[in-house]
């Protein structure tokens, strides 16, 4: 892991200066705050939207706190994932194309350190963004709707973060193998969709897929009980480790 510390420092400064460390947390915060607010004020919003005949009575039951937070997670699962993929789709391919990857790799640096430094910083940014958005959702749900079950919220947060970390790793790997950043984003988003579809189709047999983490986080919040997720966590960690090695191979392939 020669050069890991210095590369970590470089990635960190890059994230700060390129503004990624500002806009990604902002996206998650916005998503996190929007859900409890719309859940609470939906009747008022509909009423003021007009076009409704006089005397219409709108009755929407205010959802339970756990459900509101679960809805936030599903927002993170669409817009949030897209934001993550867009932010990191070019992390290696863009550096390869503009020659900065070569600038780093002609120096005595191990390929694994190069990939790992990106992984650590990106997981940190994603973790921070997710924490901020999820914390915001939790706080506003608490204020506007009611106190959710703390233990369920914490467990689901950890599970969901692992899922995001997995998507992050897929993005890095795709970026190491594919020339086009857009293709990398597509692969990352596509694999998240496929994994969730597979899980939906064969829920009993494939609950150990990484997307099981996503499902487990949701059901912990809505039903209050969590399906077994230890298998998913284990499989996800294996996947992440394997994908890192695959990324290194992708980088090596560029040489020969």
């Amino acid at each position: 892991m020669i050069g890991f510390n210095i590369l970590l420092h470089k990635e960190w400064r890059e994230a700060l200066r390129s503004g990624k460390f500002i806009w990604l947390p902002a996206v998650f915060l916005l998503l996190g705050l929007a859900q409890p607010l719309t859940a609470k004020f939906m009747p008022d919003i509909l009423a003021s939207a007009g076009n409704l005949p006089e005397g219409t009575i709108i009755q929407i039951p205010i959802p339970k706190p756990g459900e509101v937070i679960a809805q936030t997670l599903s927002q993170f699962g669409t817009v949030g994932l897209l934001a993550i993929c867009l932010a990191f789709m070019g992390t290696i391919s863009a550096e390869r194309r503009n020659g900065t990857a070569a600038w780093v790799l002609v120096k005595p640096v191990s390929l694994f350190a190069y990939v790992a430094s990106k992984w650590v910083v990106q997981c940190f940014i994603v973790g921070f963004s997710f924490g901020l958005g999820f914390g915001g959702a939790w706080y506003y749900t608490y204020l506007l709707i009611g106190p959710p079950d703390t233990q369920a919220v914490l467990i689901s947060a950890i599970l969901y973060f692992c899922w995001l970390m997995f998507i992050c790793t897929v993005t890095i790997t795709a970026s190491a193998w594919l020339r086009s950043p857009a293709a990398a984003a597509f692969v990352a988003l596509g694999s998240s969709t496929v994994l969730q579809l597979l899980l939906g189709l064969f829920e009993d047999k494939l609950s150990w897929l990484p997307s099981g983490l996503n499902a487990a986080a949701m059901s912990t919040l809505t039903i209050g009980e969590s399906p077994p997720w230890v298998g998913s966590i284990f499989v996800t960690i294996m996947f992440v480790a394997a994908l890192m090695l695959v990324s290194v191979r992708g980088l090596r392939k560029m040489k020969g």
Partner: peptide, 10 residues
């Protein structure tokens, strides 16, 4: 290299 590339933000 022929076209030296640097991190523009540094």
């Amino acid at each position: 290299p022929q076209h030296p590339a640097f991190f523009g933000w540094m």
